[in-house]
Amino acid sequence: MNDDDDLLAAELALGLIEDPAAASRRAQDADFAARVAWWEAHFAGLAAPVGLEPSAQLWPRIDARLPQNDNTPGNVLWWKLTSGALAAVAAISLFMLAQRPQIELPPQPGAPAVASLAGETGSAMAISYDSATRRMAIAPIALDPGKGDAELWVIPVGAEKAVSLGVFDARKPSSHQLNPAQARLVAAGATFAVSLEQRGGSPTGQHVGPIVASGKLVET
């Protein structure tokens, strides 16, 4: 490998460059990937212990974020989540019925579509959407945005890119009116995803933080 290529490998390992071409070369060129790994392994040695330990509460907090053994069929957490999500959906439906103005005739399609979102780290949320009124109700069940914000995304049927529907309150249920453009994206079969972003949401138009829960919208 010539010096320029090897320097590129070092620059990538160290994060000196943000070059998608170099990153994809790493995925495709085994020799180059080996050189990046060689540099990474050496740079990792720069990280010497500082003689301080994390607090004793850290492990329990990590443990709480792990899913229960999801290889076991019928495990407890799954049932808890599912029944929790269904209860939440039922509660939302009642809430939405209660919210409808008295004078207006009830919209034709009775049952809203629902989505139950879950993720590997134990995050869970329920969404209920009524296409007639374009109202969406969000019920976070287990969602911790830390110091940032939770952002809701929709991947429309047949699409590959997620479109942001905005940030929402991860701590309590909320109800939202979609605009017509958003409503065109949200139909049965669409996938919702929640990512944890910096305050105010991802600045890039695509998620930057991790996706912590996702699920499909289904007709009830």
């Binding site: 990280a47 010497a48 212990p49 500082v50 301080l52 330990e53 994390p54 850290l58």
Partner: peptide, 9 residues
Amino acid sequence: SRKLFGICL
């Protein structure tokens, strides 16, 4: 955890 905490810190 000690070593990785050192990196994060």
